[in-house]
Design a binder for these strands. Structure first.
Length: 279
DNA sequence: AATAATCTCAACCGCTCAATA
DNA sequence: ATATTGAGCGGTTGAGATTAT
């Protein structure tokens, strides 16, 4: 028995949204919150709005409502040109994650997966090709992803001794085992959007990462924190991430620019340190 | 000024996966 | 254990805007 369609599609509106439809959707979500997209159009019809048109409800399928909200109406959406800094982040993340637009978008506050995907396909891909660079897309298969996350699925937290880097007199870094034991709380490694939906990713990351009061933590740290947690959630551990990031990058044709010219592993390590400081 | 070509991006579609009955 | 459902994701489309001829 196959799956029933998300809506009958009979008598439903398609194409661009009108401002009235936007208003109706916003009003409904403000009152009832996100979710239950499938039943939203019907429920919205029951709202006590004066306008006759509004009384008819949203003539849109739930899927369409969700998309409109996530990509356009949601508060905090940053519209307009994507900055060079954001492009840099996108390039770096794409080199690691491939076309995982929702993951990439999760690390650029205010940007949507659709917007990033469009920008990549229309602008960035062209730029890369014009400079003679042929991007290879790294696709992390679900099998691979499951394998990576399998080991931490039952856990909600881990306790471990942390390895710290000590800089010797000769300038070389040396790993030292810290006596300090810390517990990190790991988000449930399920579909990213469920745990890290773009509307609440920072909040959920914070609550998952620490029960302490984080009200004073600035946005940059929050982003680092979410980046770190996402990597944990999706790859099942930093050690693996660091090793495999190097593998990913070595199979990539186009140059990945880092502001401090450090490797991805070092970048993640920095974030890891910041994460510990936050705790 | 008119037309064609190209670009942008909002929206749709089909699929997967986790949750649930 | 299996079927069904709901949510979310990435690929693709196409209408409107912009630029070139």
């Amino acid at each position: 028995m196959g799956r029933s369609p998300c809506c009958s599609k009979v008598g439903l509106q398609k194409g661009p949204w009108s401002s009235k439809e936007d208003t109706l959707l916003k009003n409904y979500i403000q009152q009832h919150g996100e979710g239950q997209w499938r039943s939203l159009p019907h429920k919205a019809a029951l709202n006590d709005f004066a306008d006759v048109y509004v009384r008819k409800g949203l003539l849109r399928c739930g899927k369409s409502c969700r998309l409109r909200w996530m990509n356009y109406l949601r508060p905090g959406i940053k519209r307009g040109n994507i900055t060079p800094e954001e492009e840099d982040i996108i390039t770096r993340l794409h080199s690691l994650l491939g076309n995982r637009w929702s993951l990439i978008a999760g690390r650029l506050p205010g940007r949507t997966d659709n917007e990033i995907k469009n920008h990549w396909n229309t602008c960035m891909l062209k730029k890369l090709k014009n400079s003679g660079i042929q991007p290879k897309i790294h696709k992390l298969s679900m099998k691979c992803l499951k394998e990576k996350t399998k080991s931490i699925v039952p856990e909600t937290s881990i306790t471990r001794n942390f390895t710290k880097k000590k800089i010797n007199d000769d300038g070389n870094a040396k790993n030292i085992e810290s006596n300090e034991t810390k517990t990190l709380h790991i988000p449930k490694p399920i579909r990213v959007s469920s745990t890290f939906s773009r509307s609440n990713s920072l909040d959920s990351v914070l609550s998952a990462a620490s029960s302490s009061d984080d009200s004073g933590v600035d946005e940059q740290k929050l982003n680092l924190l979410s980046l770190f947690e996402l990597d944990r959630a999706n790859y099942g551990g930093l050690d693996q991430v660091w090793e495999e990031d190097q593998d990913f990058l070595s199979t990539y044709d186009y140059p990945v620019h880092y502001s401090d010219s450090s490797s991805t592993a070092e970048m993640l390590e920095k974030m890891y340190d910041e994460y510990l400081q936050l705790l």
